[in-house]
Design a protein around this nucleic acid. Structure first.
Length: 674
DNA sequence: ATTAGGG
DNA sequence: CCCTAAT
């Protein structure tokens, strides 16, 4: 550029001082677009520069739209804020509703997950037992554990249904069908498919009956609360319980096995002193109900999908929320999504705080059929709690209740919630009926032709990673997921050992090939990857994304699941500390280009690091300068070579000076030029 | 979209 | 890192 040449200072390799901001700004505002040659040496440039200078700070500039636009923007912003404020209450509401809507089983699931995993790892025999199942066989331990989890989540149910709820009559009596035998098949077709078999029959009020018979004591304790609570509640979710319940089941089972010896009766967390035992919680329930009662109305009202939540359900959520928040606070650095889960009162930490919340479902022996602990379970306080929750939660459909509606949407959502809870990643659920995807989410299952007396074999759902959401690797051991060089993403995302308790499910990693599909799928993260290595992984994960061969195109139908998580807030980017090499590059670029040209710096030195924005670079420079000025003892994080810091100071000083000079010098110069 | 600066 | 204001 003409101007630049005239001002070339040539300092220690430093480039020309940047044209004052205002000027460049103007240039960018369209005038520069009139350039006629590729070199940018267009007279308009100079003209613009001069004009800008003459116009001074206020610069109503040639770009009259600028100010106008600015005002408009301001107005808009204001409006949005107002709107936001106005919406806040609504949001709150819907959020709350969301929690309730999801019902407790979700939280149940989530809360169980970590526990299960841990337990599994602790119990070789249990693990073997479970892992031996087909789908997980080929997976690496890491991955398989997760998968196993998912599988159990499904399979457990089947066994449950088979072995525990064998009473056909009972099933038939119920007006609802439920899936019982489900299989997670990720092995070959890279597709997770959960099939619903006709064996499965669930039902609404069946749960109560079953539980009742199985754990009479438990049942007897709380029937009033559960049954009487909301009387004519229509329970559309009644169909879900099955698969979800398996979690608690699994967990409990493990627990039992684990505690078999110390006759802990399978009650919760031995490792942690819990505030309340399951039994205690049960007792609390009535009270909780009262507390939650105010939400109740809202609940029913808000249920646009024919859902109705029982009082018990509400209570549960309500309760969990309290606990959940606690964790959330300490988890501030956890990705948003995760926090979200917490919010919904779903996550539990290793303490099993949550799990004690009676969620530990009754049918402890579900998973392994007549597993060792069954008898104990039935008598254990935990079992009691679990049972009551179980029943009160949602199994309240009356046999003849024609109001029961089970919409595709809810189905999808529920499945997604459940699976998401496990995999902690974005998933899309597709409903497949008779080999065809069900697109109309507004239909009820019945309308779609899916009913309890139908061949439920024909019903299934597909899961595929949600490209929009990022899944977070659940790693207990960061070292297991370490990537070479700039892999801050995963690295930072790995919970520290102290927080790892929340997760407990490890993902397969480098050493895992058989389970690639799932493991990578689980890790898919679309926001990362500066390094080639990372890119490679992304690619793989992208491929594995084809988890659903069914009709990969059906994004629309599959994405029907409302992603509240997404819309509610934007996830804060994860922290990615600058590496020394990055700092080096930054310093070098700034030395050359100067401060204030962050876009150029970005282009020059971080063009391929998409996760580093010019704002980031600017911020980093800011901190670098600060760092360079403070004593080495006060510095934190990865130490930056003093040499670099010195250069930072030097460059910063230089460019600051230049900037100052420019402020004074330039106007006159441009004036002269004119 | 960029830049600057406070949080 | 985020958020905003001002370009």
């Amino acid at each position: 550029m003409v101007l630049q040449k005239r001002l070339d200072y040539g300092f220690n390799g430093y480039q020309v001082p940047p044209i004052p901001r205002a000027t460049r700004s103007i240039n960018r505002r369209g005038i520069i677009r009139r350039k006629t040659d590729g070199n940018g040496t267009c007279p308009f440039d100079l003209l613009a520069t001069v004009a800008g200078k003459l116009l001074g700070e206020g610069e109503s500039s040639p770009d009259s739209t600028g100010s106008v636009r600015g005002k408009e923007q301001g107005a808009i912003v204001k409006d949005e804020k107002v709107k936001e404020a106005e919406d806040r209450s609504l949001k709150e509401k819907s959020y709350t509703e969301g929690c309730y809507e999801r019902g407790f089983f979700i939280s149940e699931l989530v809360s169980q997950a970590p526990v299960v995993n841990r337990s599994l790892s602790e119990l070789p025999h249990v693990q073997n037992d479970t892992i031996s199942r087909p789908a997980s066989a080929s997976m690496s331990s890491d991955c398989s554990e997760k998968l196993l989890f998912a599988k159990q989540f499904v399979n457990g149910e089947s066994s449950e249904e088979h072995e525990n709820f064998s009473s056909k009559t009972e099933r038939e009596a119920s007006g609802c069908g439920v899936f019982s035998s489900c299989t997670l098949d990720t092995e070959n077709d890279k597709q997770m498919k959960i099939q619903l078999s006709n064996k499965a029959k669930v039902s609404t009020d069946k749960g109560a009956a079953i539980s009742s018979s199985k754990f009479p004591d438990v049942w007897d304790k709380k029937p009033s609360t559960l049954v009487t609570s909301d009387e004519s509640v229509k329970l559309s979710l009644s169909t879900y319980p099955a698969p979800c319940r398996s979690f608690p089941v699994i967990r409990n089972d493990v627990k039992l096995a684990n505690k078999d010896d110390d006759e802990n009766s399978g009650c919760t967390q031995p490792s942690t002193p819990n505030k309340a035992s399951g039994a205690a919680r049960v007792r609390d329930r009535p009270i909780k109900k009262l507390l939650a009662s105010k939400y109740w109305e809202e609940n029913l009202k808000s249920d646009d999908e024919g859902h109705a939540n029982s009082g018990a359900k509400t209570m549960h959520v309500y309760y969990n929320r309290n606990i959940g928040y606690k964790h959330q606070r300490s988890q501030r650095d956890f990705p948003f999504k995760k926090r979200k889960l917490f919010k919904c009162g779903s996550f539990s930490n290793s303490d099993g705080e949550m799990s004690t919340d009676g969620i530990s479902s009754s049918p402890t022996n579900d998973l392994h059929g007549n597993a060792s602990g069954s008898s104990k379970a039935s008598s254990g306080g935990c079992a009691a709690a679990g049972t009551s929750v179980f029943n009160g939660g949602r199994e309240f459909l009356r046999p003849g209740d024609s109001h029961v509606k089970f919409r595709i949407k809810s189905f999808k959502r529920t499945v997604m919630e459940a699976v998401t809870a496990i995999l902690d990643g974005g998933l899309r659920i597709g409903v497949v009926f008779q080999g065809k995807k069900v697109r109309d989410d507004n239909k009820t299952l019945l309308q779609t032709g899916i009913s309890h007396d139908y061949k439920l074999d024909a019903l299934g759902f597909s899961l595929e990673s949600n490209p929009v959401q990022t899944s977070q690797p659940l790693g207990q051991d960061c070292r297991s997921c370490v990537l070479p060089y700039e892999t801050p993403q995963r690295l930072t995302r790995c919970p520290s050992p102290s927080t790892a308790v929340h997760t407990g499910i490890q993902q397969g990693r480098s050493d895992d090939h058989t389970g690639t599909s799932l493991s990578y799928f689980l890790e898919s993260d679309h926001e990362s990857a500066p390094s080639p290595h990372y890119a490679a992984i992304e690619k793989i994960s992208a491929n594995s994304r084809a988890l659903v061969p069914l009709t990969a195109v059906n994004a629309e139908a599959l994405s029907a699941v409302p992603l509240r998580k997404r819309s509610e807030a934007t996830q804060r980017r994860i922290r990615r500390p600058f590496s020394v090499s990055e700092v080096e590059a930054l310093v070098q670029a700034v030395e050359k280009l100067g401060t204030g040209r962050w876009r150029d710096v970005k282009l020059r030195a971080f063009d391929n690091a998409k996760h580093r924005t010019y704002v980031d670079l600017k911020d980093k420079w800011k901190t670098l300068v600060h760092t360079a000025r403070i004593s080495p003892q006060q510095r934190r994080g990865e130490p930056v070579p003093q040499e670099l810091l010195d250069r930072v100071l030097t460059a910063h000083a230089y460019w600051s000076q230049q900037q100052a000079k420019q402020q004074i010098k330039h106007p006159s110069e441009t004036y002269l030029l004119l």
